[in-house]
Nucleic acid binder design. Structure first.
Length: 215
DNA sequence: GACCAGGCACATC
DNA sequence: GATGTGCATGGT
């Protein structure tokens, strides 16, 4: 299925962000939010020259919230960004690279200890900002796998993550592109109401209606 | 006007 | 442990 998606979409070269910090910030801002709205918020931060650990730390909470307003949930996300920045600075000062440079279990634990960073956000940061092997499970991953009968509706995050991690070689570049392919196929063909026509996974067993919001 | 978008924390039972 | 709820903008 990966090869079918890759053949259809090409190498995705994720994450859409220029620096590790931008990737971390984007990962928090995109929680339950359309990426296009996140881009507006990131543009505001860049334009305000606020996309650095020191600047984010110095920025008053209401000002930060206003800048990220287009990304929605701006009050909670402003606090989450502050929490992340505080954790990094407390551990490694302004050196985000140093913060990210540790074993995957240690980094994941440190990230999950930040209020506002859950499993998906932590794994996104580990895989895309740190470039280390931690498979990301998101709403698209869940929906695509469910629709193809590869998981059960009640399977939880860690079970789905393990499904990939136990089956794939430990290659961060592969995991990076694999998740990006799932997002692409999800956006195009695995919306809550399926659009199977032209889907590279159409030849694989699937149920066009499984996983829809109305069951 | 309804639905959807690359979650998470918290309250309640 | 399972379930429900608040958080919010912007595109389709």
């Amino acid at each position: 299925m990966y090869e079918a998606m890759r053949a259809a979409f090409g190498h995705r070269a994720w994450w859409p962000g220029e620096t590790p910090l931008e990737i971390c910030v984007g990962a928090i801002l995109t929680q339950n939010t359309n990426w296009r709205n996140v881009e507006k918020a990131l543009a505001n931060l860049k334009h305000g020259e606020c996309l650095s650990l020191a600047a984010l730390d110095a920025l008053p909470l209401p000002a930060l919230a206003e800048l990220i307003r287009p990304a929605g949930y701006y009050n909670v996300k402003a606090r989450r960004l502050k929490n992340f920045v505080a954790a990094v600075r407390e551990a490694c000062g302004d050196n985000l690279t140093a913060f990210l440079d540790r074993s995957v279990p240690a980094l994941r634990e440190a990230l999950l200890a930040v209020r506002g960073i859950g499993r998906e956000t932590a794994d996104s940061i580990i895989l895309y900002a740190a470039g280390k092997c931690s498979f990301v499970v998101d709403a698209y991953t869940y929906r695509v796998l469910l629709r193809h009968g590869l998981i059960a509706p009640e399977d939880d995050y860690e079970a789905i993550k393990e499904l990939f991690e136990s089956a794939l070689p430990a290659d961060a570049e592969l995991w990076n592109d694999y998740h990006a392919q799932l997002v692409e196929v999800g956006k195009r063909h695995c919306r809550p109401v399926a659009r199977c026509e032209g889907c590279p996974l159409e030849k694989f067993p699937h149920d066009a209606q499984a996983g829809t919001t109305d069951g």
